[in-house]
Nucleic acid binder design. Structure first.
Lengths: 189, 189
DNA sequence: GTCTATACTCCGATAGAC
DNA sequence: GTCTATCGGAGTATAGAC
């Protein structure tokens, strides 16, 4: 590795470090309750560097959200490629435990943004991919011959949302796994 | 009415008015994003009066939460007095639309407090009455002869939580009523 | 009205890569 | 020597709790 790439590495390392520390603090204490000075201290960088990289606090939030969205998109891609409708639904139910758990802070943050100021809330209400997610579920339930695929989908999304909320407050993984299996059993057509 | 009682009346009126305005603003913009000065302006009182009555901003939040809890307790009382286990479960499912909708601002606020700072979140995680609610559901599912009353209860609470979240973002009552009926249909034992 | 916190700015200095 | 990422600290403006 050349010295130059070491420099590049350290650059991105600091930038990435700011992102990961900010994510952690935003998720833990909320966006509004996390000051840029706290982030800089915990990340071991100067406060000015945050603004150099991200222009302002919201720019930092943007960067965090766009990084986290990628993993959701990857999971969604996996679901789309699953040919069995039933397995697609199971993947949807597994979603909270697998992806949200991998990226717990990120999902807590995104959820919490709904309860921030309306502008913030609107900006990060990423409707496009969620709509696609919804469409995929509707078509899956249709393929299974269910009577009301739209209502089934709404109910399932509500369940998934609830599961992610549970994960936030509850650290007991086994308990949640048990619940998820229980729910899957209800989808044995 | 004497002048003195008029004075008393206006005192409590102003206090109540602060509470109701603060509730509205906290629910709409979030606790952290609502300043005491905005509350005072909209309530038509001096900012100092807020601190005279509630000591500090969190004291105001306390007052709001304790007022709102009453309606939940009343609904819970109704559920306990219902002799049919199935009807108790239906009452639980109806809970979001009936009580949360009556007191939409209050429930939005309580939900949003989960995403505030940990101290705030912990303080208002009213565990006692929710535990009783849970117990009542478990005994209801047991009475109906279900195999896993605890898991059924967890699943139902998750559903109810999800419904309350839906109510926040969605103004379409009919849509939610339809979903609720759909869910009730799943509980026809 | 007071005081503190906070987002954000500016700039001189430094260290390491060319 | 120059460039660039970064530091560190002084400083501003404003909002918000009290």
């Amino acid at each position: 590795m050349s010295d130059y790439s070491l420099l590049i590495l350290s650059m991105t390392l600091k930038k990435d470090n700011i992102i990961s520390v900010a994510l952690e603090l935003f998720a833990k204490h909320g966006y509004a309750n996390t000051s840029t000075s706290k982030i800089s201290k915990q990340a071991g960088v100067s406060e000015g560097l945050i603004f150099r990289h991200f222009v302002n606090k919201e720019g930092l939030l943007d960067a965090i959200v766009s990084v986290g969205t990628e993993s959701f998109e990857a999971y969604f891609e996996k679901m789309k490629n699953e040919s069995s409708a039933k397995q697609r639904i199971f993947l949807a139910i597994d979603f909270p435990l697998s992806i949200m758990n991998e990226n717990k802070d990120y999902w807590n943050l995104v959820t919490s943004l709904k309860y921030q100021s309306p502008e913030i809330s609107k900006k990060y209400h990423n409707s496009e991919i969620f709509n696609q997610f919804e469409e995929l579920l509707i078509s899956s339930f249709t393929a299974l011959g269910l009577e009301s695929p739209e209502l089934e989908t709404k109910y399932l999304i509500l369940t998934i949302t609830g599961l992610s909320g549970l994960l936030k407050q509850n650290d007991n993984q086994e308990e949640i796994k048990e619940l998820i299996n229980f729910i899957k059993n209800k989808y044995q057509y």
